Simulated assay, not measured.
Amino acid sequence: MILLNTLFTLPTPLHTRKANPTKAISASHQALRRCVCYDLHKQLIPYQEAWSWQKSIVRTRHSLLGQDEDHSDVVVVLQHPPVFTLGTGSSEEYLNFDVKNPPYAIHRTERGGEVTYHGPGQLVMYPIVNLRYHKMDLNWYLRSLEEVIIRVLSSTFSIKASRIEGLTGVWVGNQKIAAIGIRASRWITYHGLALNVTTNLTPFQHIVPCGIRDRQVGSLRGLLEENSASATEDAILLDITYSSLLKEFSEVFQLSLQQASISKFDFSASSLSLVV
């Protein structure tokens, strides 16, 4: 078992402005806010464990509200073993299987959105961000997460991606390459985005992804092959995409990232020791 406070010590906060619990603080009027990044992008973390960890961090962040001690946002990047997740209002009509005999585990969560699939080769980013220090607007937050993906595809892979009005996520042509589903509790976000990099897309056939019947799901690997890009090993492509994700995330949200590489971690809430 490895506890976070045995791995590293966080430096003195970069900003000293007191948090206003009712008004967001513009990043342009303060030093870049710190964000601790837990790098698990090479690992398959069971969904239930990562979900419990997010909720534990959110509870810790709640305890800091109003105390001028919430000095850092958090972002976790990882992969999951095959799993289906449903949003709080998801309909089982979008499942192409008997819910009593699913091909993979199913979890109904408190995030927004319909059913989606997570699996190896998909980079999942969970930002746990205090929007009081950014912008207290969930529509802005969703569009900002989309912007991160759009920039990654453009700057690193010269792929033009876009939004589709009325839908959440990122698209390349008719293919949805990234899904987004979030939850905010007292303006602290959790859940996040999932980008298909080298993902096997076959499991998506078991569902109607995000409840959208007339569009396809794509992957970065598939798009590169369509464009006759030179072959890149899956592990290398995941590493390149991960690095680009962090770069664009830090720029879009104006955050100073501090990496925390972890080779082994116990996600159970009872053993979690978080320094913020």
Score class of each variant (00 low, 15 high):
111 R>I: 10
187 W>A: 00
74 V>Q: 12
174 N>S: 13
94 Y>W: 12
172 V>Y: 03
131 L>M: 15
176 K>I: 02
167 L>M: 12
77 V>W: 07
55 K>G: 12
179 A>W: 03
119 G>I: 07
67 Q>Y: 08
115 V>A: 03
149 I>R: 01
80 H>Y: 00
82 P>Y: 07
90 S>L: 02
63 S>N: 15
159 I>H: 05
195 L>N: 05
190 Y>T: 09
78 L>V: 11
122 Q>I: 11
185 S>F: 00
104 Y>K: 00
113 G>Y: 08
141 Y>N: 11
65 L>M: 14
187 W>Q: 04
196 N>M: 01
139 N>P: 11
170 V>K: 00
72 S>P: 09
112 G>D: 12
196 N>R: 01
115 V>E: 04
67 Q>V: 10
97 F>I: 02
173 G>T: 08
152 V>K: 14
125 M>T: 10
183 R>K: 15
77 V>R: 00
122 Q>L: 08
133 Y>H: 14
191 H>T: 05
60 T>H: 15
80 H>S: 04
144 S>F: 08
71 H>N: 13
144 S>W: 07
185 S>E: 11
93 E>W: 01
139 N>L: 12
73 D>I: 11
84 F>K: 00
79 Q>D: 03
146 E>R: 06
189 T>K: 05
79 Q>N: 04
68 D>L: 04
74 V>K: 10
121 G>P: 09
135 K>D: 12
150 I>Q: 14
71 H>F: 14
97 F>W: 02
97 F>N: 02
191 H>V: 00
63 S>M: 14
158 S>M: 11
108 R>A: 13
82 P>T: 07
68 D>Q: 09
155 S>Q: 15
81 P>Q: 00
128 I>K: 09
132 R>T: 14
55 K>M: 13
128 I>M: 15
166 G>T: 04
189 T>V: 01
140 W>L: 04
143 R>V: 11
123 L>T: 09
92 E>D: 12
181 G>D: 08
99 V>S: 14
192 G>Y: 05
148 V>L: 03
149 I>F: 06
97 F>L: 02
131 L>Y: 14
74 V>L: 13
75 V>N: 08
146 E>L: 09
178 A>W: 04
86 L>E: 05
151 R>S: 13
177 I>H: 03
192 G>M: 03
114 E>G: 12
146 E>D: 08
106 I>T: 06
131 L>I: 14
100 K>S: 14
189 T>L: 03
192 G>H: 07
150 I>S: 11
167 L>I: 03
193 L>E: 00
93 E>L: 08
185 S>W: 02
127 P>Q: 09
192 G>E: 08
139 N>C: 12
111 R>W: 10
116 T>Q: 07
70 D>S: 12
196 N>P: 05
108 R>T: 15
58 V>S: 04
122 Q>H: 09
101 N>K: 13
148 V>Q: 03
105 A>D: 14
183 R>F: 05
